[in-house]
């Protein structure tokens, strides 16, 4: 029997939080940028999945990590462009188009998987590249925290760097200002000469590229193969994290960490008597409550 206190005292529990937060942080930063532009990106799930797939396949075919990265990002960009064309140019409902893209991604990855590798479930027979773990000498001397922060995957560090980059992008660049203008008041944005669709399109593409990095981590980071539907709802959870965190980078980061804590706890608790379904549902309950309270408060103002 595992004791909850034992789990909480164990640095590997926190190291797992950091690890599982990688795809979530990338995707929720993507969700944030899209939300700021006023176009929720419901296609994150499908984009992550497709990037995870094409990253593995391209890196296996080219035997190059870099090409795999490029392949994954290119496919993320491709799906984002499809989303933009249908929803912005041809005015389809962006939510429904995005759901279509998610289904497309789920089907096309499995179809191409069996066409390329002859396998139905995963690519474990392919020799695909993996991002390395990074070892920091100076962290070795740090007790507890050193163990948590050291020897994570290169992409994990990138995810935390991407949080800063997104923060700077939103706060310090003209694009960030335009983004918020378009999201909050499109009419005003038009009146000062901004092209709303162009800014929304750029936001959706950045959002897709970030989600793509999250997907690449899934199949080329902690594990080295692709399995069908391996994103397991992380794209949706990223949307929840964004909804919970609001429109601030810090808020979204914290709420992503909350969801990651739930995931990490559910792994640790598999040995314990506490049912992990209940643990995993807690972040969703919190999100729903926060959303509803927010709606109630903003209404009575």
């Amino acid at each position: 029997m595992v004791n909850l206190l034992d789990i909480l005292m164990n640095p590997s529990f926190y190291a797992t939080i950091i690890r599982v937060s990688t795809p979530l942080l990338f995707a929720s930063m993507g969700a944030l940028i899209a939300a700021l532009a006023g176009t929720p990106n419901v296609a994150l799930e499908g984009i992550m999945l497709f990037s995870a797939f094409s990253g593995t396949i391209v890196s296996a075919l080219s035997q190059s990590l870099f090409m795999g990265l490029l392949g994954g990002l290119a496919s993320a960009l491709m799906l984002s462009v499809i989303l933009c064309i249908f929803s912005l140019k041809y005015k389809a409902n962006i939510i429904l188009t995005a759901i279509g893209i998610n289904i497309l991604s789920s089907g096309l990855t499995v179809f191409l998987l069996s066409a390329v590798s002859g396998q139905k479930g995963n690519t474990s027979s392919l020799q695909s590249a993996v991002f390395p773990q990074i070892h920091f000498e100076f962290l070795e001397k740090l007790p507890f925290f050193g163990e948590i922060l050291n020897n994570q995957n290169a992409l994990t560090y990138c995810a935390y760097i991407s949080v800063f980059v997104v923060y700077l992008l939103i706060r310090k660049t003209p694009f960030g200002t335009h983004l918020k203008a378009v999201g909050e008041n499109p009419d005003a944005a038009i009146s000062v000469g901004l092209s709303v669709n162009k800014i929304k399109a750029i936001a959706l593409m950045i959002s897709g590229l970030l989600a793509g990095l999250g997907g690449i981590f899934l199949s080329m980071g902690y594990i080295s193969w692709f399995t069908r539907d391996m994103t397991g709802g992380r794209g949706w959870i990223a949307l929840a994290a964004q909804a919970l965190g609001g429109k601030s980078v810090i808020g979204v980061t914290l709420s992503s960490l909350l969801f990651s804590t739930g995931e990490s706890l559910s792994y640790s608790l598999q040995m314990a008597d506490i049912p992990n379904e209940l643990v995993q549902s807690i972040p969703f309950i919190i999100t729903i409550v926060v959303l509803l309270v927010y709606l109630k408060v903003s209404d009575s103002r």
Partner: peptide, 12 residues
């Protein structure tokens, strides 16, 4: 899973 591709095209 070909069906999912068909579904996706129909939705989009």
């Amino acid at each position: 899973d070909l069906v999912k591709i068909i579904q996706a095209i129909i939705i989009i």
